[in-house]
Design a protein around this nucleic acid. Sequence first.
DNA 1: GATTTGATTGACT
DNA 2: GTCAATCAAATCC
Length: 227
Amino acid sequence: MGLIPPVAVPAARLPAGGVPGPGLRELLSADARQVAPQLLGAVLTHEGRDGLVSVRITELEAYLGPHDSLHPDPGSHTFRGATARNAPMFGPAGHLYVYFTYGMHHCANIVCGPDGTASAVLLRAGEIVAGEELARRRRPTSKSPKDLASGPARLATALGITTADSGRDALGSPFRLELPAEPALDISSGPRVGVSGAGGTHDYPWRFWLSGDPTVSRYKAAKARPA
DNA sequence: GATTTGATTGACT
DNA sequence: GTCAATCAAATCC
């Protein structure tokens, strides 16, 4: 049925032992739908003035651009072209695209695809693997360690990422990104969370998560617009 | 210049 | 399950 073929199968497997820096940048320069599953299990670290927090990624979503991909992505911030906000998505792979939403939340993406094309993966959830005490201080409302980064805004808050970090390189200080030594074995995929319109349907099954992981956020459909 | 909306979360019934 | 919070960016007129 779908006009949009479900892509989503990783074309390449990671070599055992992970990928060194330059190879990582190259790996991230692929289509976000290929990159996303490979980033499951990866660890993103941010060392700020107040300390270090590391998150092991357990859930993410791929977003594409209007013209660089085979099919336009109506769920993407770049669907209607480049703006001041989404500019980093058109930049080099490995950099951050951070946006502010609902008047209070920050969400972080890692830019994918070659420089000049719009593509990124939204970091939706993770497990705190270092700096849990600092993460707790940043997220005092969390009732359980599993809640510290279980959601895109929660993850960004736990890592101390804001729009000031948008456009910065996630592969260089004060950030660090490490791929898992072994690719994730049990990956699930499905429609993206909170995306209204066609981009949130099964025609765009570009949400990926580690099957059964307790830190994965609960699925929530986009709020339906009243007629 | 005015209005709408949102890649969400947390509190509450 | 429902809903308010809160404001920048995008969209509308």
